[in-house]
Simulated scan of single mutants.
Amino acid sequence: MEGKLRADEVVFRHVIAKLVAKELRPGDRIYETALSKELGVSRTPIRQAISRLIAQGVLENREGQKGYAIPILTPEDMQQVYVSREVVEAQCAYYAASNATPEDIALLWDYNMQERRLYDSDEKERFANLNEKFHLSIVRLSENIYLQRFALQLYWRAQLYTFYLGGFYRTYRNLAEKKAFPQDPDHHTNSEHARIIRAIENKDSEEAKLSMADHIQRTYRHFCRLM
Score class of each variant (00 low, 15 high):
residue 85 R to C: 00
residue 102 P to Y: 00
residue 43 R to L: 08
residue 62 R to M: 03
residue 111 Y to L: 11
residue 88 V to H: 06
residue 93 A to T: 02
residue 52 R to T: 02
residue 66 K to E: 08
residue 89 E to V: 07
residue 98 S to C: 05
residue 96 A to K: 11
residue 77 D to Y: 03
residue 79 Q to T: 01
residue 88 V to Y: 08
residue 105 I to A: 08
residue 106 A to M: 09
residue 78 M to W: 04
residue 86 E to A: 08
residue 62 R to P: 00
residue 83 V to Y: 12
residue 105 I to N: 06
residue 93 A to Q: 12
residue 94 Y to L: 15
residue 61 N to I: 00
residue 74 T to E: 04
residue 86 E to Y: 01
residue 99 N to S: 02
residue 56 Q to H: 08
residue 91 Q to S: 14
residue 100 A to C: 15
residue 64 G to H: 02
residue 46 I to T: 02
residue 55 A to P: 09
residue 80 Q to M: 09
residue 49 A to F: 01
residue 101 T to L: 06
residue 74 T to D: 09
residue 108 L to P: 15
residue 78 M to Y: 00
residue 105 I to K: 14
residue 70 I to N: 11
residue 80 Q to K: 14
residue 67 G to M: 12
residue 72 I to A: 15
residue 92 C to G: 10
residue 63 E to P: 11
residue 78 M to E: 07
residue 83 V to S: 13
residue 110 D to N: 15
residue 71 P to Y: 02
residue 58 V to M: 14
residue 46 I to G: 10
residue 57 G to A: 03
residue 69 A to H: 00
residue 55 A to E: 10
residue 48 Q to E: 14
residue 91 Q to G: 05
residue 56 Q to R: 13
residue 80 Q to P: 04
residue 66 K to D: 12
residue 50 I to P: 13
residue 55 A to H: 06
residue 68 Y to V: 02
residue 84 S to P: 05
residue 81 V to C: 11
residue 105 I to C: 12
residue 101 T to M: 09
residue 64 G to M: 05
residue 62 R to C: 00
residue 50 I to W: 05
residue 56 Q to K: 12
residue 71 P to H: 01
residue 95 Y to H: 11
residue 77 D to E: 11
residue 60 E to N: 12
residue 76 E to H: 10
residue 48 Q to N: 14
residue 106 A to G: 08
residue 89 E to R: 05
residue 49 A to D: 06
residue 56 Q to E: 11
residue 102 P to L: 02
residue 75 P to R: 09
residue 73 L to A: 07
residue 89 E to N: 09
residue 69 A to G: 03
residue 90 A to G: 15
residue 61 N to H: 03
residue 90 A to S: 15
residue 64 G to K: 06
residue 81 V to T: 12
residue 105 I to F: 07
residue 67 G to W: 06
residue 44 T to M: 09
residue 87 V to S: 10
residue 83 V to M: 06
residue 103 E to P: 10
residue 103 E to W: 00
residue 56 Q to A: 01
residue 69 A to V: 01
residue 48 Q to S: 14
residue 89 E to I: 03
residue 106 A to P: 03
residue 70 I to K: 12
residue 46 I to L: 05
residue 112 N to Q: 13
residue 58 V to K: 07
residue 72 I to V: 09
residue 75 P to T: 03
residue 111 Y to G: 09
residue 84 S to Y: 01
residue 71 P to K: 03
residue 99 N to I: 02
residue 60 E to D: 08
residue 96 A to Q: 13
residue 71 P to N: 08
residue 95 Y to T: 04
residue 85 R to G: 05
residue 82 Y to E: 04
residue 77 D to P: 05
residue 108 L to N: 11
residue 44 T to N: 08
residue 97 A to P: 05
residue 100 A to P: 14
residue 61 N to V: 00
residue 49 A to E: 04
residue 44 T to I: 05
residue 51 S to H: 04
residue 64 G to D: 05
residue 77 D to F: 10
residue 81 V to K: 13
residue 86 E to M: 13
residue 48 Q to F: 04
residue 98 S to G: 14
residue 79 Q to A: 04
residue 87 V to M: 12
residue 54 I to W: 07
residue 65 Q to C: 07
residue 56 Q to Y: 10
residue 104 D to L: 06
residue 88 V to P: 11
residue 98 S to M: 13
residue 108 L to R: 14
residue 58 V to G: 13
